[in-house]
Amino acid sequence: MMGLISYLVFFTTIASILAIAVLGLNLQWGNTGLFNGGVVAFFGAGAYGTLLLGGAPQADHIGGFNLFYPLALIGGAVAAGLLAWVVGRLTLHLRHDYLAIATFGVAVTFENIMRNAQGFSGGAKGLRGFTRPLEAWVNDGLTYNVLFLLVVSVLLICTYVFLERLIRSPYGRLLRAIREDEIAARSLGKNPGKIRLAAFITGSCIIGLAGGLYATFYAFVSPQDVLPTLTFQLWAMLIVGGAGNNRGAIIGTFLIWAAWTASGWSLSRFAPVELQIYTGTMQFILIGLVIVGMLLWRPQGLFPERLVVSQSGRKKN
């Protein structure tokens, strides 16, 4: 029983952290129509940023500034935002798919640098030696995890409320206007480039925040955590939930994460031993099928975006 509870706590924590990242992605893709092909780079920037800023000093690499934890978490999000600023400045004024290529490249490069730059990121063995905030005060592991889940849930709700208010505001209307018809938006005196960049950076900061929480939860991050797999998973979560719908994004995250863990578990449990090494392969095929299948048959997702009509066209008599 305790095992089940602690597993549920673990599952919900990871799913909630990923949900925050998917909400950030939704701001980029769902609301603004920006394709981020390297979500994992911004997630990783947050993760590495948080651990480097908040960790204890280490002999063999830089970082370990022992910053007050919330500051370290914000620092991680800012690191992700800075990365987004650089990529966005270079590509957002070009053909729309340049952003996809550039972000994809950033993700490959980010993983590559983290794997090789020993002195900066700890290389392939990752960043260790991070003490989770307040861990010394709570001596029971499960209690700590429950408390951590509470913090994550509060942050998830805050992100949700923030984004809901944002997309309902005139600013959100502007984002949709640019997504639907850039020329029309420009004719009304709006600057699509600037607003796209702002939305891209904001979304990346939120993804970075999720990365920071993820690394804090494990008190560890390594290049294995920033593989392209994560990008595909987050994408599948968003497309299943429904791009443009924040509630859908959260539900999609929980559904896909449950499906992912369940499929991994059942493949390792029931598949013949000689097929066991193909567990990952089969899971990837499933993720690919989910993405392509959703795009073909239900591109709006399970929970489609609700159109916000500011003023109905008909005159009231």
């Binding site: 394709f35 092909g37 595909f232 994408w235 497309i239 990837f284 095929i285 993720i287 690919g288 099928l289 989910v290 993405i291 392509v292 795009l295 073909l296």
Partner: peptide
Amino acid sequence: FASFGVAL
């Protein structure tokens, strides 16, 4: 987006 899925 679909091309990512196809590649996978």
